[in-house]
Amino acid sequence: MTTKTYEKYYVPAQSPWPIVGAVALFFIAFGAAHYVIDISKQQSGFGGYLLLLGFAILVFMLVGWFRNVIDESMSGLYSAQMDRSFRQGMSWFIVSEVMFFMAFFGALFYGRIIAMQWLGGSSNNAMTFELLWPNFEPVWPLIKTPGGIETQAMPWTGLPLINTIILVISSVTLHFAHTGLEQQKRGQLKLMLLLTLLLGATFISLQVYEYIHAYRDLGLRLDSGFYGNTFFLLTGFHGLHVTLGAIILLFVFFRVLKGHFTPEKHFAFQAAAWYWHFVDVVWICLFVIVYML
């Protein structure tokens, strides 16, 4: 704001995409709700189709919307102030994502430090323990619930450790892609970005493998009590975020191949990178809290 001449802030005249996006979310929400009901009753219904329709409209919207934005950006309509708006918007979006994960981490801490101990009779709950589940042992991981569901814990060595290393390396390669972009080394940029994508894909595949292993060999399931609940929801939402981050990076990669982005202006790249680093940090918290401790 200290620059002498004021660059006009670009306000698009009108846009059909937001309302298309709203319709998409309607079908997704309404469809998902009915789909959930349908599968819980093991009946076939229209929910799944509406959900798919919603996603199709969403993709259509995203393509159209981003095409407009990219065109505007490439034709130089965006001022430095606009770039700041985008960056700040993305940062706050990531803050909101952090809080989403906090809800589940908070639940995990509460369940482990408070609920489980109380069920085991601590604090003023001696009678709760005596009368409800006198055989319950409050140990974490909760491999036997008060109600008697048994499971096995997922060890942190092996796959999870490998996955941690993979994700950390992918953050580093992404960082080098960024420096490549900033120093005009397009070769390094492409190579490092590609490497990041491959590492991301490996992570997701290993995660899928781990889920199969959990279900088949360990009897660790989404419904095996509080341990399984938090394990699958935390790693599951994280996995979804990795997938989303990888898709975003893929599109960034295509744009890089097309010659987009300059050392000064590369908001889309920056946003995707921030998102990726955020997902990485979440994983490290997850690895420590869910797997190791």
């Binding site: 639940a107 369940g111 909760l142 619930t145 109600g147 399984g228 609940n229 929801l233």
Partner: peptide
């Protein structure tokens, strides 16, 4: 409600 978790069910270790 739908997927058998027990965040809010003491029998599964929740509360």
């Amino acid at each position: 409600k739908y997927f058998g978790t027990s965040f809010f069910d003491a029998a599964g270790g929740g509360d």
